[in-house]
Design a protein around this nucleic acid. Structure first.
Length: 532
RNA sequence: GCCCCCUUAGCUCAACGGAUAGAGCGUUGGCCUCCGGAGCCAAAGAUGGAAGUUCGAUUCUUCCAGGGGGCACCA
């Protein structure tokens, strides 16, 4: 049996195809701004109007009858409003049968089997120090995007690219050497732009303690810092499948291979002692150096090699999360992918905007004034940190108010959501509820009951939006709305009184609410609370 | 100088070019004999400025004002 939300989408798609022979890009249905507009709203008539040069109302009228016919059992009515909105009201029978289906299948009710193979590269912070709060945002956003895509049945690999070679690493090593000399009694002579962080001193001490091993300095410092980074990530609950070393890619001559390919395609020329790639032929602002005059290979080339490597691993889609400092970088990577003979559309880059804090202290790792992710987590905790990170959309600056996040946790919408979970648990404890029985669900006829049920059944559209836009913030918005629907319901209707049938029916409804709340929180990587 | 992002209620944020511009916090006023009042209900309150495209602009274009961030043969 087809789930109600799939059936409704398909129906509209078919009707449009039949009446006008057109296919429109999804989503065809959206959640309406207000409850009075029904359960779902579609602007397809408005979209078609400009395409077909017809009046939107006329189109809506033409779509309405066949749509109602196709969905006669599932839909109470289809309304046409002003400029040409199609508003759909789901019937009580479908609401109730969906509730029972949800109770039987739990979160599987919302899952799909899209079966795409997706590579998600995110964080990839330079291994030169512990993670900052900006990296934390990328980590959490990436993790939740991956969760959502996996929930829809895709195979997602989470990948961290380690920039373990190059000038920043040299700087790191010489900063460490300076610290070692300092510990040995000499004056501290950090190189210019050297890393000042306290963690370097700790690593220096550790190195002196273990030096019997005679490990190479570079390897020692890198493995120590990667351990710091992994610990930070773990404390956020973020795990990676792959750790890809830039150094290894360079060693395997993949970088030189890329230059050779470009040369064979006649896209390399020499100027001022350096080799240049004619990236402007592929839409880049200016040509890029692929071999410096001193013979060194710039970062950009190894990044091309890395992306070529990703493509060769046969994914349907590559997603990169980058910081805002990389926005000018997108064009040249796409140009390179193009120049190597691949489709640039395979890569989707999401820029995660900056995280600032209210005190307006600038974050810069090199200046040593960064606010560390570990500090943040130890103050607000993993779940609150994750939640706060997701409260803005990717392209918006996130102002992380640390004082509010740790001092005034009652104002945190997370607690509002968790409180809904707690109230449900409390009711179930009192009810000493047994398993649900589907036959009672029919007793849900009140508009308050059905209102909450309607909120639950909006979840598939929320998930669809998240996967479509790669914006986890919609899960937050949904959970806030659902929690609000629940609290309203709780104030107006009592569960543990009245007729037994109605009580059991409402317990079914609460069980379903619990399933959806938990499912949403799990996708965010946040543990639902049972008691506070 | 060039490029990107931002400017919506007192504050923090919403609104594929569409419905009466929505929420939360704060403010004001209600609601506890009651499954956890960490809640619910109600009220007041907003598109930085100017022009343009459109049946229709918070959304697109241009200019102006203000804020943030980028502009390496760094990574």
């Amino acid at each position: 049996m087809k789930k109600f939300y799939q059936k409704i989408s398909k129906a509209l798609e078919n009707v449009i195809k039949k009446e006008y022979g057109v296919e429109l890009a999804p989503p065809l249905w959206e959640l309406p701004q207000k409850q009075e507009f029904g359960d779902l709203s579609s602007t397809v008539a408005l979209r078609l109007a400009s395409k077909l040069k017809k009046s939107p109302i006329e189109i809506a009228l033409q779509l309405k009858a066949p749509l109602e016919k196709l969905l006669s059992k599932d839909v109470e009515k289809v309304e046409i409003i002003k400029p040409g909105f199609l508003n759909l009201f789901i019937s009580q029978a479908t609401l109730v049968s969906s509730l029972n289906e949800l109770l039987r299948n739990k979160d599987k009710f919302f899952r799909r089997k899209l079966k795409k193979k997706i590579l998600l590269e995110f964080v990839s912070a330079n291994p030169t120090g512990p993670l900052s709060i900006a990296h934390g945002r990328q980590a959490v956003v990436g993790d939740v995007i991956a969760n959502a895509l996996e929930f829809f049945g895709n195979q997602v690999e989470r990948e961290y690219y380690i920039n373990d070679t190059g000038r920043q690493i040299e700087l790191l090593v010489s900063s460490l050497e300076a610290r070692i000399r300092e510990i040995n009694g000499q004056a501290l002579t950090l190189p210019q732009d050297g890393y000042k962080g306290e963690y370097i001193r700790d690593i220096a001490k550790e190195y002196l303690r273990q030096r019997t091993k005679r490990e190479e300095l570079r390897r020692f410092v890198l493995s120590n810092i990667m351990a710091l980074i992994k610990k930070d990530l773990l404390s956020l609950g973020v795990k990676f499948d792959n750790w890809i070393s830039q150094r290894k890619i360079v060693k395997e001559k993949k970088v030189q291979g890329v230059v050779d390919i470009l040369r064979r395609r006649g896209l390399i020329y020499e100027k001022e002692g350096a080799l240049w790639f004619s990236s402007t032929k592929f839409g880049d602002d200016k040509d890029r150096v692929v071999k410096k005059s001193d013979g060194q290979l710039p970062y950009f080339v190894s990044d091309i090699a890395y992306h070529k490597d990703k493509i060769k691993r046969r994914f349907n889609s590559l997603i990169n999360l980058w910081g805002p400092d990389h926005h000018g970088y997108i064009g040249r990577v796409e140009a390179a992918i193009d120049a190597l003979g691949y489709k640039r559309e395979i890569l989707k880059v999401i820029i995660i905007q900056l995280v600032t804090i209210k005190q307006k202290i600038k974050m810069s790792k090199r200046a040593g004034t960064a606010i560390l992710l570990s500090d943040l987590i130890s103050e607000v905790g993993k779940d609150a940190a994750r939640f706060y990170y997701l409260t803005r959309r990717n392209s918006s600056h996130l102002e992380f108010d640390i004082d509010l996040a740790c001092a005034a946790s009652f104002d945190n919408p997370l607690y509002y959501i968790q409180y809904a979970c707690v109230r449900i648990e409390s009711i179930f404890r009192k009810a000493k509820a047994e398993d649900f029985d589907a036959k009672y669900s029919n007793f849900l006829t009140d508009s308050e009951d059905l209102g909450l049920l309607r909120s639950l059944l909006q979840f598939p559209y929320c998930l669809e939006k998240v996967c479509y836009s790669l914006e986890p913030v919609f899960i937050i918005e949904f959970l806030k709305n659902l929690a609000s629907s629940f609290h309203k319901f709780y104030e107006r209707k009592r569960v543990l009184v009245g007729a037994k049938e109605l009580m059991l029916a409402r317990l079914n409804l609460l069980e379903a609410t619990r399933i959806v709340l938990h499912c949403g929180l799990n996708l965010l990587g946040i543990k639902p609370v049972r008691r506070m």
